[in-house]
Simulated scan of single mutants.
Amino acid sequence: MDIRVRGSGPAEPFLGAASLFETEHELQRPVHVEIRTDPDERTRVSHDDGAHQLIISKQAATSAMARELALHEFAHMYRHERRHPSHVQSTDEVLFLALAGQSVERRKITHCYQIANHVKDIYADDLWVGLAPGEKLVRFFESTLAAALADRPVDPAPAWTRRTSASDPDITAVNAAFALALSERHELLEAGHPLYDLAHAAARDAPNVSLEGFKHRFLTLDPDPDASAYRKSMVELTREYALDDRQAAD
């Protein structure tokens, strides 16, 4: 892999991740990594015909998850190069097909984009999770889900005034389903793992969201769908989250 790292941060996590990734997969385009001091620029990836560009904060580049984060982004680049449906299908098109003529809350529309990103992440992570120990990834899921639960609204819930995704119990439950599904998809969890307790706590806060239903959808994603099958699965997933039973039947 042709990789170049610049900026005020360590190159080792990216070079190490590149060496590990290329034992199984090969990127055709070079990768340019730019480390920035801005902590809000956690990661951002762009692509053109000449190269992939990864912009990452120094905070993320020096974290314990730096190598795994690099592997994750390399996997997204690989899926993009190979034109995998998850990485070329327009989310806007999926939302139009799924929700045309329906009245949907703005917050749920925003969450649908996050759900689409979860699906992209699953297809990316399928490429690299087996290349590195999964303990750090599971600990990351634990810490982020625990933080989301701690940030949930009080009961009775006030009007939606906060703007973080963690403050909304519905998407927190979907996030929990994603974490369980990805972990189970790669056999990273033992029975009784604390992540299950956190996920079920999230589900109790979101009675209108089926934790098991979304976990099943994420867990059973076809590893090699064609464009039509992928679009259909995304339309169904979007409708399940955004519409109530009456709207979905319509």
Rank of each mutant, 00 (worst) to 15 (best):
V129E: 07
T164R: 15
R204K: 12
V154P: 08
L219N: 09
F141T: 01
F178A: 03
H193E: 02
F214M: 05
L219Y: 14
V154R: 14
I115W: 00
S210Y: 10
E184N: 12
H118L: 01
E212Q: 10
R152I: 01
K215V: 02
W128F: 14
V154K: 14
D226W: 09
P207Y: 10
A191F: 05
R162L: 13
P156K: 07
G130N: 09
N117S: 14
L195D: 00
S210D: 08
A199M: 09
A146F: 00
A173Q: 01
L198S: 05
A181G: 14
E212F: 06
L211P: 13
D205A: 15
A148W: 01
A116K: 00
S233F: 10
A201I: 02
D155A: 12
K232R: 15
D197I: 13
P207N: 10
S167A: 14
D121R: 09
S210G: 11
T164C: 03
D170E: 11
P225S: 05
F178K: 05
W128V: 07
A191I: 06
L180Y: 09
A227Q: 13
F141I: 01
R231I: 03
S228I: 11
S183A: 15
R163A: 08
D205W: 10
P225H: 07
Y123M: 08
R162M: 09
K215G: 03
L189Q: 08
A227I: 07
P223E: 03
H186D: 10
K136F: 06
L180N: 05
L182A: 06
A179K: 15
D125T: 00
A206Q: 04
L219F: 12
D197E: 14
I171K: 06
L195G: 02
L182Y: 09
A191K: 11
A206I: 01
D170P: 02
I115S: 01
A150W: 04
R185E: 11
A206C: 06
S233L: 00
H200N: 12
L145E: 00
E135S: 14
